[in-house]
Amino acid sequence: MDSSLHEVWQAAAGSPFIPAVGKGSQFWVAFILLVIGFSLTGAFALNRSLVNLPVLAVPASLALAFGVVYMFCAVGVYV
């Protein structure tokens, strides 16, 4: 146990932790990201080619990745 930790807490009074996306907007951010992700996935599914891998598949995966994480939070499972 380190008794100096209380001072660390006091010293950090001016910088409370604020998340990148607040609780109120998590659902809409997640929803829009998932819609974009699924649309791009659909577009890639219709036209599968090596060029479309970086053009469609990578942004689709990124949008789905962050969309899934925020949707988990939006429904109350704070991961």
Partner: peptide
Amino acid sequence: RKPLIVFASVFAVLVGAWVVGN
């Protein structure tokens, strides 16, 4: 780590779809 894991999984599925399609 969390979004990267989901990203890697989805991207692997899409690359798999492209490979299987060819």
